[in-house]
Every structure is written in structure tokens, then in C-alpha cells.
Amino acid sequence: MIRSDYNRHPKLLILYASYGDGHLQVSRAIQGALEERGNYRSVMIDLMAESHPWLNEVTRRFYQQSYTLMPSLYGWMYDVTKPIKHNSLLGGLLHSFGSEKIRRIIAAERPDAVIHTFPLLAVPPIARRRRASYHPPSYAVITDFDLHRRWVHPSIDRYYVATEDLKQELAHIGVPGGRVQVSGIPLRRSFRTLDATDALYGRYGLSPDRPVVLMMPGAQGTLADLGEICSRLLSHPGLQIALVCGRNEQLRTATLEQFALHPEAERLRVYGFIDTIHELMSLASCILTKPGGVTLSEAIAAKLPIFAYRPVPGQEKQNAKYLSSKGAATIARDPAELCAQIMKLIDDPIRLTNSRLVIEQLQTAQTAADSIVSDILSRHSIMGRASIL
């Protein structure tokens, strides 16, 4: 029997969470890649916010505040739960959040597949229940360079990971290699082309004659010793700073006030939230950033040497350590060490070129979103042809 809907595009459900901007950006990148192929049938859902709005808000606030108020506690929780298994008491509890909501959504929407961009895996447990009338295949897009077992479930049909090392880690815990694709982490379409032009320098008030140190404290705009770091970097007459404070308007205002009378203030440009961060990355010589998986992937796409200052324990510290082991990132513990490392790079064109070459080795041949979408659509094309018989 031939399916009447054989020629239609598959309907895909993309599940994310709003703990930081990264998971949302990854989801939008995948949705954008689908739409470029004419598939407008994807549905994005913030599952935790939809199913448990009050708990979602509380846990989001804890996550955001953990960077400044209790980073050690967050890191301890990450490390303790890192080896957690899906069938443990805690693992089962974590994956139960949103299960009833997603069961109703799947029954109503009947998607052809579900894509997870956050390790809230409520769909796989549903698939294992005998009473479940319909359970679509599930795919997981791991958004860090470190593997936390919350991402792992036997009912996940396919994993998309940032590196070959992650694929090997999954193999080590029993996930067959055929179920894992090294895709990279999906980024916005704007990162496909990164060109520095005089017009861009002018748009951001920067000079094309000096190297740019891009500083990105993160979506909440937090970075310890920010004022001292800026002061030390400005003591180097040959560079300029582009500081992106994100949505932290208080930080932006305080920084502008602090450096208003600084003799080198014209070499410090301070911005709020910028949606076109790829443009600033195209102008930069290096980046100092909070090492979230998406931001690090953006830096890799732009071939920017990465500096991480006192990375918060947890996935971000592990991300930084991984890229440091590959020669793509430098971790510093105090402002003097950090600024000396940045200046050493800026002052040595050969070192800078070699750093970019190392980072280029971490790039994937195809953009991650395209790679993931191509793989998913090809798998569903095969399923569709099989169902004709």
C-alpha cells in the first residue's frame, strides 16, 4: 500500500530549553536549515516552560545565578550527575519532566521525528511504554564538547556530536558507532560567510589598523575582573577591545562610566546585546569568552583563538579543557596571566596564524545544521520508500 503522504515533507518536533541562549540558537539553526530545503513543518517547543512553567523559572534563575553566586555548587552537581544512567532513580526523574505534556503533543501533532537539543529526554521513555500508541524516532543534538550521561538513552535513534572524541566516548559506554554522526554544533546561517570589510569596521566604531580583542562575557554579561582585564589590555597601544555585554545593561553602563575618563577609552568599544555577532567575530583577532558550546563553535567557525578566564565548573570548564587539549583555547586564572597570553598572541603574527590553522582542523566539512538536516531527511526518505512496499 502506498502512503498518501509519501511526497510530503516530514514533520519534525524540535525540543529545547531556555537555560541560556545556546539551545534555542541550535534549534533555530536546525529549523532554518529545514526551511532552506522547503520544509516548513518543524515545530519548536520549550518543553520545560510549556509543561512546568513555575519550576522552569526557578531552575532557570538558579542556572543563571550559579555563575556568580555558587559556581562550585553547580560544578559539583554537574560532576556528581555526569555518570547518571537513564534507568537510575534520578535519571528516570529528570527524564520524566514534561512526559505527559509531550505525550499529548505527539498524539495531537503526530510528528515524523523528534529532535532534542537539550537533555530533557521525555520522549524516549514514552516510546518504551507498551501503551504508547505512537512513538516517533528520536534524535539528540549534543550541544557541548563534553559528554554528560543525561544525553544518553537507549531509545535515542541517532546522536549528533561536535567531535570524533565524543563519538568515541559514546562508543565506550555502548552506543553503536552507526548511531552517531560527527556533525559539529549547529550555528546560525550567518556563520557560513565571515568577511571583514571596511564598512563593518566603521559600523562598530573599530579601526582596521589595530587587532581587535573580542570580549564576550555571555548572555548575562558576567565575567570576573572585567575592569582590570580591560585596563591591562588597554596598556598595550597596538590593540583595541570590542566588549559585548549582552543583556546586562548594568554592566554596560558601569563599564562606560568606569572608562569614561580613561586616556585610551577610544580603543574600548562597549556594546549591549548584538544579534549579528558573526560580524564582530569576522573583525576580531581572538576572543575572550564564557565557554559555552555554541559560542565556542562560533569562534571555531570564525577561526578565532579562544581565551577562557576562570571557566565555571561544569560543562563550560570541560569545554574549555577539551579545546585547550587541542591547542584551540587557553585557560587563565588571573588577569595578569590572561592579558600576557593575549598580548603574546597579538604581538606574534606567526603564532596567530598557527593558532588559526589549529582551529581550522576542528571545523567540519559541512555546516552542522545542514549535515544534521541532510541526515535526518535522508533517513526519513528511506523510511518513506520502505513503507511503499
Rank of each mutant, 00 (worst) to 15 (best):
69 L>V: 12
70 M>C: 15
71 P>I: 08
72 S>V: 04
72 S>T: 07
73 L>H: 06
73 L>T: 14
75 G>K: 00
75 G>E: 01
76 W>I: 01
76 W>Q: 05
78 Y>D: 11
78 Y>F: 15
79 D>W: 09
79 D>N: 15
79 D>P: 01
80 V>C: 03
80 V>M: 05
81 T>R: 08
82 K>I: 07
84 I>R: 02
84 I>Q: 02
86 H>D: 12
88 S>C: 03
89 L>R: 13
91 G>S: 06
91 G>H: 07
94 L>Q: 03
94 L>G: 04
95 H>D: 15
96 S>V: 02
96 S>P: 01
97 F>I: 11
97 F>E: 03
98 G>P: 06
99 S>I: 14
100 E>Y: 07
100 E>Q: 14
102 I>P: 04
102 I>W: 05
105 I>V: 15
105 I>G: 06
106 I>G: 02
108 A>F: 01
108 A>P: 00
109 E>I: 08
110 R>V: 10
113 A>F: 00
114 V>T: 12
115 I>H: 02
115 I>D: 04
117 T>D: 02
117 T>Q: 01
118 F>L: 10
118 F>A: 14
119 P>R: 05
119 P>Y: 06
119 P>G: 06
119 P>T: 06
120 L>A: 05
122 A>K: 03
122 A>V: 05
122 A>T: 06
123 V>Q: 11
123 V>L: 08
123 V>H: 07
123 V>D: 10
123 V>A: 10
125 P>C: 13
125 P>T: 09
126 I>H: 00
127 A>F: 06
128 R>F: 09
129 R>C: 12
130 R>K: 14
131 R>L: 11
133 S>H: 11
133 S>C: 08
134 Y>R: 13
134 Y>E: 12
135 H>K: 13
135 H>D: 13
136 P>E: 00
136 P>K: 00
138 S>F: 03
138 S>P: 00
139 Y>S: 04
140 A>Y: 00
141 V>Q: 04
142 I>D: 04
143 T>P: 11
143 T>L: 13
144 D>V: 08
145 F>Q: 01
146 D>Q: 12
148 H>L: 04
148 H>V: 04
149 R>E: 15
150 R>T: 13
150 R>I: 11
151 W>K: 07
152 V>K: 10
156 I>C: 07
156 I>L: 08
